[in-house]
């Protein structure tokens, strides 16, 4: 009689030999992400009086190579929140899988009117990101969370690979922080201005930002996704073409190319 429960129902060493656990340990130290590989560029978002507009282009770059041109970087979480991912695409896919499992669990647990708000989602994500950076194994993303908070008020906040979080009437990741934020801040310098801003103006501002980013960000593309989140739900369009481009300014640029003067 074997009194050790660990061994019950398992093959006997004296008959079959000891269990070979070799496949469980690689024999090499664990490796963690030291730099992102396939990356998405900027995400931009702006609050308006009834909700939030958020956009990101559909490009996943491999260094300077425009590798995947149909990658959707906006993810609808539920009827009141959308996520925009900048940074590593495989980490984005991991987080998407994680959040899908969270959503399924939540749907079994509670009725729809108690659905996780964008604010709840942001808190959850910030804990995941901070935990991973504290394990020296960061998820290489900068994420915007857009939607409605628990009181159904517009919500926009960000979390990055270090677990740093902040919120603002307008937000942008990557190059967007340099190129798009000034445009959006002019429109919504504070929360009061955002609470007055109309939906169409907000959409137009985001479209202008995407255009400026395409003009100047070499890792961007002219096809993008845009989402509008209001009480009515999520209006997500994943294949928008950049319109009314004007490259007239380009021939006045001097000093970067092969031209003499």
């Amino acid at each position: 009689m074997n009194h050790f429960p660990e061994a019950w129902g398992r093959p006997r060493d004296d008959v079959y030999g000891a269990y070979n656990g070799a496949h469980l340990a690689s024999g090499m130290p664990n490796q963690h992400t030291q730099s992102p590989i396939v990356t998405g560029t900027s995400v931009v978002g702006i609050k308006f009086k009834d909700g939030v507009v958020i956009a990101a282009d559909n490009l996943a770059s491999y260094g300077s190579l425009a590798r995947f041109t149909d990658v959707k970087r906006l993810h609808r979480f539920n009827s009141k929140s959308v996520l925009g991912f900048g940074g590593d695409v495989s980490d984005m896919q991991y987080l998407d899988r994680l959040l899908t499992s969270l959503d399924i669990r939540e749907n079994y647990h509670s009725a729809d009117d108690a659905a996780l708000s964008a604010k709840n989602l942001h808190t959850y994500l910030s804990k995941v990101m901070y935990k991973r950076r504290s394990d020296f194994n960061p998820l290489w993303n900068h994420i915007l969370v857009a939607g409605l908070d628990t009181e159904e008020k517009p919500f926009l906040a960000s979390v990055d690979l270090l677990g740093t979080t902040f919120s603002s009437p307008s937000l942008a990741t990557g190059y967007g922080a340099h190129l798009a934020q000034p445009i959006m801040r002019k429109l919504v310098p504070d929360e009061e201005a955002a609470a007055r801003l109309g939906k169409e103006e907000a959409i137009q501002a985001i479209k202008d930002c995407m255009k400026v980013l395409f003009y100047r960000d070499a890792r961007s593309m002219d096809r993008y996704s845009i989402a509008v989140i209001t009480k009515e739900g999520v209006d997500l369009n994943e294949d928008v073409k950049l319109e009314n481009q004007s490259w007239a300014f380009a021939d006045r640029i001097r000093g970067y190319g092969t031209q003499v003067n």
């Binding site: 660990e6 061994a7 006997r12 030999g17 000891a18 656990g21 340990a25």
Partner: peptide, 13 residues
Amino acid sequence: DPGYSFSAAPTAA
């Protein structure tokens, strides 16, 4: 020693 088959077995799994 008890002869169960996990003497060389996964510890971290």
